[in-house]
Computed example of a mutant assay.
Amino acid sequence: MDLLWALLTLPYAPVRGLTAVVGVVAREAEARQRNPVNVRRELEELDAAAAAGHLTPEERDRAEQRVLDRLTGGVSRQRPPERRPAGEGGVRDVRRRRPGPAT
């Protein structure tokens, strides 16, 4: 049965091979991207660019956060929107009320 299956799926062999190669390349790229040595090198390059005046402190902080997020696999930290009381044009908690028992 395995021989028959192999013969029937033979035309798809190049696709399976390409899929395997793409998987290996993707794993290698991710490993290099998360390699602490490469992350440190990128952080040092950011520091050098900031020291040379090519980056503002805000740009450097954003770029540094992206590099660190890539290392840790986290999502970049963004400030949540400010909430104001409902009477001042802010966000108000509006929830649907479930119908309760008839009284």
Rank of each mutant, 00 (worst) to 15 (best):
R98H: 13
T103M: 08
P11A: 11
P36C: 07
E28N: 07
R83K: 07
E82T: 04
L8S: 01
R62W: 13
E42A: 02
V94H: 06
D69A: 08
V91L: 04
R84N: 01
V75A: 05
R34N: 05
Y12V: 11
S76V: 04
A48E: 14
L4H: 10
R34T: 02
V91W: 09
V15T: 09
D93Y: 13
P11W: 05
A50D: 05
E44K: 03
A31D: 09
R41D: 03
R41N: 02
A86N: 08
V75E: 06
P36D: 10
Q78S: 06
R66A: 07
L18Y: 07
R92E: 15
G89K: 00
A51Q: 15
A48G: 09
A52E: 15
T72G: 06
V21P: 04
D93N: 08
A86H: 12
P81R: 04
W5L: 05
G23T: 02
P14D: 10
P80Y: 13
R16I: 11
D93R: 01
A26R: 07
R96W: 15
T9A: 07
D2H: 04
N35A: 10
A49H: 05
N35K: 08
P14E: 07
L46S: 00
L10Q: 13
L55P: 00
P101Y: 08
A26T: 09
R92S: 15
A29C: 12
P14H: 05
Q33T: 04
E42L: 06
R60M: 05
A51T: 09
D47N: 03
R60N: 01
A52H: 13
L18F: 10
R41W: 11
N38R: 14
R96E: 15
A20P: 00
A49Q: 09
E42K: 02
V15F: 09
W5H: 09
D69Q: 03
P99I: 02
D47P: 07
L43C: 00
L68W: 11
E58K: 00
